[in-house]
């Protein structure tokens, strides 16, 4: 009896591992395939039948980093590294600005009841409802007039449409989850409300702020249309810059794959870094049992 139980338990564990492996492979396959592609030349990628066996090459990466794209038709200038820098700059400045504006606003929405409070919060969320292109066409005209078209300032401003509602709504939930009694206790101890906000409320909402910031960064990073319409070559992020890989002499699959790998890296690094802030549990044990 016991032996049969042991065997079936072993079988169950084996099946579970197999199922997990299949699922992981299914979801990670596209990424894996892209990483493999990035180490192949266009010819290797396009051969029929496709093969997993190839001589890895770093020509794609060299081309991207040096900014010289070699195609069958000749050599093209490719400002990929500049695009990457633009992406980093636009995304991080936008997220920082959104945090500075959004976290105190989220706190206010969570803690205070004021007239039209819910309406304002909802309006901010509704920025995400409108199709971006519909907003952008009139906006680009205004930006031309105001001199904001093709400036970092203008882009960061428009990126607030992406980042601010996200941060506001996620962080607000975290502030609401923390018991206000903890801040009250700090006030009664003799601390000003500003100190209660910075020393108690913000650390307790830390995981939420980190999660919202990371998510906002990813959304900003992956944005395409805003920059496509409002920025020209020297202000473009990678998402728009990638259009350059569609050349007159064909699509440069190898370089596209390498570019994807390179543009995943900053977000990945940020996610790994933010992970330790994402750990829940700071607020555990603060209040009763």
């Amino acid at each position: 009896m016991a032996r049969i139980d042991g065997t079936s338990a072993f079988l169950a564990r084996g099946l579970r591992t197999l199922a997990l492996a299949v699922i992981v492979l299914f979801f990670l396959f596209p990424i894996l395939w892209i990483v493999l592609m990035s180490f192949q030349t266009n010819e290797q990628i396009l051969r029929i039948p496709p093969s997993l066996l190839f001589d890895p090459t770093i020509v794609n990466y060299r081309a991207l980093i040096s900014g010289k794209l070699v195609t069958a038709a000749g050599q093209l200038d490719l400002p990929f590294m500049r695009n990457l820098g633009n992406s980093v700059l636009l995304s991080s400045v936008s997220v920082l600005l959104s945090l500075v504006l959004g976290v105190p606003a989220a706190y206010a929405f969570a803690r205070f009841r004021f007239r039209l409070g819910e309406n304002i919060a909802f309006t901010l969320l509704s920025f995400r409802f409108a199709p971006p292109l519909l907003v952008l066409l009139p906006l680009s005209l205004y930006f031309q007039d105001l001199g904001l078209a093709n400036t970092y300032t203008g882009l960061v401003w428009v990126y607030q449409l992406i980042c601010l509602p996200l941060i506001l709504w996620i962080v607000r939930g975290y502030f609401e989850d923390a018991s206000p009694d903890i801040e009250y206790a700090y006030r009664v101890d003799g601390h000003s409300w500003w100190r209660a906000f910075t020393r108690i409320a913000i650390p307790l909402a830390g995981p939420g702020i980190a999660a919202a910031g990371l998510l906002a960064f990813i959304f900003a990073w992956n944005n395409f249309v805003f920059a496509l319409i409002l920025a020209s070559a020297d202000k473009q992020p990678v998402t728009v810059g990638a259009l350059a890989f569609v050349t007159a002499s064909g699509i440069q699959y190898g370089q596209i794959a390498a570019a994807i790998v390179l543009s995943i890296l900053p977000t990945l690094a940020l996610a790994l870094y933010a992970q330790r802030w994402l750990v829940e549990g700071l607020s555990l044990g603060a209040v009763k049992g």
Partner: peptide
Amino acid sequence: MAFQNFALYP
């Protein structure tokens, strides 16, 4: 003041 839920700073 002491709070019902203790309200300690976690």
